[in-house]
Simulated scan of single mutants.
Amino acid sequence: MHALAAGMPHVTVVHGSGDNPVYQVGGKSFVFFRNPRPDAVDPVTGERFPDVIVFWVESDADKQALIQDASTPFFTTAHFNGHPSVLLRACRIGDLTYAELAEVVQDAWLSRASARRAAAWLAAR
């Protein structure tokens, strides 16, 4: 995951709270790692999830497609209602193929990159 995010063009990595990496393009975050928060908890134990990754998405339709598809490990919480992002527990990355994870990272980058950078990256592909 880290290599995919860092491998996108014009990416910088800053460190947020808890020294968690925040991947940015043009000063805009597109993937970041959260500290355990009260809105993302194990429904059985009530323990806060220690490994939540946030990925930006282009639109609410994209978000809904990911979180409503029961075959994906993506989810959201009430804290992220109205926010263009989806959540994924790091322990569930293995539920995705490399190609699926790459697509999510690339789409997150595209949703935050400038139109010029996004067009250049897409044209090069």
Rank of each mutant, 00 (worst) to 15 (best):
R125E: 13
A118V: 00
D51C: 12
M1P: 13
A113G: 10
H79I: 00
K63D: 01
I67Y: 08
D107M: 05
R117P: 01
V13P: 10
D39R: 03
V105F: 14
V54S: 13
V44I: 14
N81G: 00
R92L: 01
S71N: 07
L88I: 09
E47Y: 01
A123L: 09
Y98W: 01
L122K: 15
T72N: 05
R92A: 09
A78R: 12
R92I: 05
W109F: 11
A90E: 11
A108C: 08
W56D: 02
R117V: 14
R34Q: 12
W109S: 04
M8A: 02
A124Q: 15
V52L: 06
D62S: 09
M8K: 15
I67D: 06
A3C: 03
L4S: 12
V11N: 07
S71T: 12
A123H: 12
R37Y: 09
A65C: 02
V22Y: 03
W121G: 03
E100I: 01
D42R: 02
R116M: 07
R125N: 13
M1Q: 12
V105I: 10
H2P: 00
A99L: 09
T45H: 10
A65E: 11
T77Y: 05
T97Q: 05
V86W: 07
P43N: 08
R48I: 04
L66Q: 03
V104R: 15
P9D: 11
A6S: 13
R48G: 04
R34E: 15
K63W: 08
N35V: 06
A123W: 07
E103T: 12
V14T: 15
V11W: 05
E100P: 06
R125K: 15
V13F: 07
F80L: 01
Y98S: 05
D19K: 14
V44C: 02
D95Q: 15
I53Q: 06
S17E: 14
V14K: 15
V52W: 07
V105E: 07
V11D: 06
T76H: 10
